[in-house]
Design a protein around this nucleic acid. Structure first.
Length: 270
DNA sequence: CTAAGGACCTGTCGGC
DNA sequence: TGCCGACAGGTCCTTA
């Protein structure tokens, strides 16, 4: 479900319900996620006031005095704010109960998500080698050009690499490359500076627009406030293989890059 | 160092 | 209707 816009939508949806609240209890009913939920997490959170709910890449950080809970939604994770007495379903892993009488419930059928602990003054190893935020000034044409220098990797694979830039997943990589008119298979090191500058602008624009729209609704994605995302209506290539290009009318082609479905227009993207 | 592939999971969908 | 394989928003880890 989540790429950066979906994570940001989730973060924004849950933050008002969490910030300033006290964690009364952490119920871990199914600790097995990508990594097991640490046993000491409850002790780290219970009785603490939630100071902030922020985001780094696709991680949501729930900060309290002493550290932060790191939440990653993986492929199929989602969070909802519910009354504390809502019965749990099969894939409901963790409930974070609050003094408001509500709770934050983490659901993740495929279990690729994670819930970990990062003490103050320690950068968790998962966050240590992340590239810049795509919407920050640090992510600019010069930076991307330096990353592409001498690289033979397909440009799509490169922009999906979180060490290069965080938050660009399969949907928005496809969309940004379409907007930029670049063939996703093209070797990163063989793209002109001018075209990389366009690509940076397109990545920012696509992500910003998707956040505005509340993310892309795929299957059952809903933000923390329960409202669906509306970006799906604006997808030009993702999920449209075999259909006609919205710009030129030619048939969109599909290939696999790094085992990920890649859709592009053979005439608009070179 | 780079690049490519496997691995981790469950649910859903299309084809037979 | 039922079974089986392919595929799905991510990303770490191993291998070459």
């Amino acid at each position: 479900m989540p790429e950066l816009p979906e994570v940001e939508t989730s973060r924004a949806g849950i933050a008002p319900h969490l910030e300033g609240r006290i964690v009364t209890r952490l119920v871990v009913r199914q600790p097995r996620l990508r990594w097991s939920v640490p046993e000491q997490l409850a002790a780290c959170l219970e009785g603490k006031t939630i100071r902030a709910v922020t985001r780094r890449g696709k991680y949501i950080l729930i900060s309290v005095d002493g550290g932060a809970a790191l939440l990653h939604l993986g492929m199929s994770g989602s969070v909802r704010i519910l009354p504390a007495d809502t019965p749990a379903g099969k894939h409901d892993h963790v409930d974070l109960l609050l003094d408001s009488g509500s709770m934050l419930r983490l659901t993740d059928p495929r279990r690729f998500g994670a819930l970990l602990w990062q003490p103050d003054n320690e950068l968790h190893s998962l966050l240590a080698s992340l590239g810049p935020e795509p919407l920050s000034d640090e992510f600019d044409a010069g930076y991307l050009q330096a990353c592409c220098q001498g690289r033979k990797t397909a440009i799509k694979t490169l922009i999906m690499n979180s060490q290069v830039v965080v938050g660009v997943g399969n949907i928005y990589a496809n969309e940004a490359l379409f907007q930029a008119g670049i063939d996703p298979r093209r070797a990163a090191g063989r793209i002109s500076a001018a075209r990389l500058e366009t690509l940076v602008a397109c990545i920012k624009q696509v992500l910003a627009r998707a956040i505005e729209q509340g993310g892309t609704t795929l299957r059952d994605f809903v933000g923390g406030d329960g409202k669906p995302g509306y970006f799906k209506q604006e997808l030009h290539v993702y999920g449209r293989a075999g259909e006609s290009c919205t710009a030129c009318g030619n048939i969109l082609k599909e290939v696999r890059l790094g085992q990920r479905s890649t859709v592009y227009c053979p005439s608009c993207q070179r």
